[in-house]
Design a protein around this nucleic acid. Sequence first.
DNA 1: GGGCCCATGAGACGGCCGGGCAGTCGGCCC
DNA 2: GGGCCGACTGCCCGGCCGTCTCATGGGCCC
Lengths: 215, 215
Amino acid sequence: MADKVIRVLLVDDHQVVRRGLRTFLEVQGDIEVVGEAADGQEGAERAAELKPDVILMDVKMPGTDGIEALRLLRDAQSAARVLIVTSFTEQRTVVPALRAGAAGYVYKDIDPVALADAIRSVHAGHVLLQPEVAGALLSQDQAGGSGQGRGNALTEREREVLTLIADGRSNREIARALVLSEKTVKTHVSNILMKLDLADRTQAALWAVRNGVGG
Amino acid sequence: MADKVIRVLLVDDHQVVRRGLRTFLEVQGDIEVVGEAADGQEGAERAAELKPDVILMDVKMPGTDGIEALRLLRDAQSAARVLIVTSFTEQRTVVPALRAGAAGYVYKDIDPVALADAIRSVHAGHVLLQPEVAGALLSQDQAGGSGQGRGNALTEREREVLTLIADGRSNREIARALVLSEKTVKTHVSNILMKLDLADRTQAALWAVRNGVGG
DNA sequence: GGGCCCATGAGACGGCCGGGCAGTCGGCCC
DNA sequence: GGGCCGACTGCCCGGCCGTCTCATGGGCCC
């Protein structure tokens, strides 16, 4: 790993931040900063011409932000691995960033040495998150944004229904399986979707699989 | 980072695996294997007495498995960071493992050098996942680039659509995402269901998750 | 006894889903 | 050129899905 230099592109609207990162990373030996950009659009362009191994990207930037930049890179089939380096515990941006293809998500208060390690990990093909980020990711289901029905615990019956949804069953089949009318099943399904803040049974099935319901 | 040795505990029921890991890690210089254990119970006990910095833990073990061991460690308020090193793409165990406090989750086929980096990252306080794992968590696209040879007669386009179905998207959303008419999406969906012998999009989403489409 | 939650279920309704049928366009093979 | 296939799209339509409203009965708490 130390025998090959990792080529890095910095994308951040603050020149001071870029300078600081560059200064530190350059002395690492196995990391070379090959370019900088001040916003997502420019970042994508630089990435296309410089073909860096890893891109350190801020989320909040004027114009094209980090998430949009990730999409641009993906559309351009960039091989670069993107490590998001952002300022706050922006729970909102974590999931979109990862969905858009980010390979990592860390905060700017990260220990510089740890950042270098993070770059190496991301370059090695891993997805890397800071613990607070992973926590935010996993707790999103129990979050329950709006006021009502918080603590969103599904009832026993609802969990039974969800399990069958996660098995790919239709309302009619679920009704037969639980000896209920289809209407009742629908009521349960509606309550499940409301409590988990999901749009339809497909999302419910996926939620169940990921959260080990019915497994 | 290199000025301080990372003390590691190996927990795996296969002695061969432990031996291999130990041999490799010992030559890293900054990693020291301070102990081994063959199951979760023993792992928790060793952790209590040896107080390692990082624990490499298998999930599937006779008796107390890795998840249960994580709970034991948590109850014992262990400061050790646990990196799960497991054999398969066991989607079911990822979420429970992270919920139970795992600091990382990688597969055994990991590049040894990358494993050493993973240990350093985890030790530095990060949460680290291999891309396949993160993919299972988020179930999102980002095709690997290489042609996935095996796989039912689904065409490239159909696979794209299936990936979005597996993300819980509606036909309309898929249409917008791929810049198509909703009717075309429906046609693709119909073809997918026919080819895979499935009844509806929910079953298709579940099929995709279980067969790693979109990871 | 009066709330309150849970489970059950009816009727009505709009909407999305999936299938059937039909058609265009472009690439590939012989 | 003719045949075949994949991608794309329109119209029609039956049916399942999910929401809303309203209602009953049982268990629990104060």
